[in-house]
Write a protein that binds this DNA or RNA. Structure first.
Lengths: 199, 199, 199, 199
DNA sequence: TCGTAAGCGAGACGGTACGTCGAGTCTTGCT
DNA sequence: AGCAAGACTCGACGTACCGTCTCGCTTACGA
């Protein structure tokens, strides 16, 4: 998280409840209007809070949005005993998170902002990495089971698994259904295995 | 392109020169300041044009930016006689276009906007598809040469090739160098081949 | 009248019909929307004429409006054989012209403009003086009949007769009815007579 | 005055200082450039205030100007012990206020606006009536001293006194000097007395 | 138990940009 | 040349949203 200043111990302490209400309102409005349509006044109103209260905790709208996103539940790590199934489920969960529904546009908005604002970039990084963690677990388990080569570069593997879906969501705008996810996952796995055998 | 209304032959015609100046100025400022830092007044000034003239042609800043991007040169189709080299070059070109430098944040900004504005979405679609065209040519040539299976789904293939790079640019913010591009391209090709053999 | 330049004899001559249509449209729109709400585009549309055609004949909106007003019919000179009746009728006619109805705000608008624009001032002067002419006739007849002293300053007399009505119309916004007009006219006449006797 | 809404005691109160600065700047610029040349941006700059702050208090430029005028100092009530002198001084003061100098065009501009905007009309009314108050005092004193008949209609009397001067200022554009004022005042008084004797 | 340092709601404020409007000029093709 | 149509410049308008500041009040800790 990223509260502006660590609550000093003198004076009236900041209400934890308030912070939660703000983040929740942010998330809801983010979902409804997208980042570009996100209004701080509205967040304040929905959260039943005043603007200064918001700015006492987060230095800017972007930071707030980023923090709200960080709070999103991490993906749960599936375990069907089968690599492909696990990965398909993970990609689908990710899709559900910000790909399918109205959250779709937060990610690009944040990406846009990051290009100009390295400070924010650093802030968001960890949250995004967290979302990728379950992929690592699943992939490692795949390696242990011998379904994947041990020389695997995990980072590249995740990019490969997630990339096609993201391309559709963020760029082409094409629909992503289960069949598509399964296909791309299968090809990625096959590619990773094939390459490892060569080198 | 997307001029607000198709110029009828009556009255003083819209100066084509003016449109070009506006688009060029937009592109230049987009490159320098990014989409978030793009100012219509400034475009007007740089283009030597008045604000109303801009708004007579494009309904909003986003539409203008989208149109300016559409005007970006299409990727040239490389032909080294080698599938992998061709694809690596294509992906790298794409990266150079909006992935690397200051144009980086236009794409996400547009992506963000599209989610809310289907009209704009329709506008952008073709331009994006055009950028993908050279991939299709190269892939088809690969099939002809027998480097790729003929059952290949071209759309999926392009997603697979481009997706990892995009993921880094738009989401994780990690650096994309030539080695990375080559690796992901190689894996994708291998995967596409491997899968075809199975089914 | 004030055509911008006297029609040159070479080339196609200006249509007299056109000028009339413009002035008529101006007058109509002036009546409906007042001077502040007068739009040149609208005049052009109503007159079935293009904007440049208007500006070829009048150098500005104000000049056009002034010209349109000049075209208003002069007050007819009443002759009831009775000074008071004649003056009451004249003041009432003036009131009807621009005091009562929607033309009410042209006069002040012109007045406002005159303060800044002496050229226009000169233009309007004569038209206004023309409207006052019948007063002079009636007053002179009154002098001849011995109803008024011969030493009378006519200009001051007209101001005195017209002023109270104008004050209500332009400044206080109070209603002006026949009774009010008759009262002020009667007092003015009495004052003019009384003063003449003193000096 | 006419602040957009009566300031409630909740939240940060509107700075009275700010309002004063805006009105003062308005008045100054009004005097320098006239109403037609009045620019809101400039008012903001001169007042050291932002445009939204202005529009938070007054719904439009006209309302602001009207309010600024309302703030003009009321005429002081002279007392030379002589009716005519008092009235001449009052009319001259009025002339100085908006008749002589650059404020001349505000009054007509407001008059023009009032015709279309009854809300504004209501706003201005009181201010104008206030300016007339000293006339009432002086006239009443004249009645007490027996210089004027007690049956006098004060409203009509003021119109009579002020009307001629206004006619010149707003309509004919003729010069108004002391001699003119004295003459019209004298005639008006004489008329008022003469009429009273008759009835 | 009370003072004091903060939290807080409400909303004013400066700043910066937006998109729009209207006046008056310019350009094209036709008459 | 005149003219219709409409593009164009210029300059201003009124609005939106951000992030900060200022009130008056409330809350909790610590002397």
């Amino acid at each position: 998280m990223s509260s502006r200043s660590d609550t000093p111990s003198i004076g009236r302490p900041r209400s934890e409840e308030t912070s939660r209400a703000i983040l929740e309102a942010t998330l809801r409005l983010l979902a409804r209007h997208g980042f570009a349509g996100l209004r701080v006044d509205q967040i304040a109103e929905v959260a039943g809070v005043s603007k200064p209260t918001i700015y006492r905790r987060w230095p800017s709208k972007i930071h707030l949005a980023a923090d709200a996103l960080s709070g999103l539940p991490d993906l749960s790590t599936p375990d069907h005993g089968d690599l492909e199934s696990d990965l398909v489920e993970l990609v689908t969960s990710l899709l559900d998170l910000f790909g399918k529904a109205p959250l779709a546009d937060i990610l690009p908005a944040l990406a846009a902002e990051r290009a100009q604002n390295p400070e924010l970039s650093a802030l968001i990084g960890p949250a995004i990495r967290d979302k990728r963690k379950p992929f690592f677990s699943v992939l490692r388990r795949g390696i242990e089971r011998g379904e994947l080569p041990s020389t695997l570069n995990l980072d590249v593997a995740v990019d490969l698994l997630v990339g096609p879906m993201l391309t559709r969501v963020l760029v082409t705008g094409d629909v992503v259904d289960e069949r598509y996810v399964r296909t791309t996952v299968r090809i990625s796995i096959a590619g990773l295995i094939a390459i490892a055998e060569l080198s």
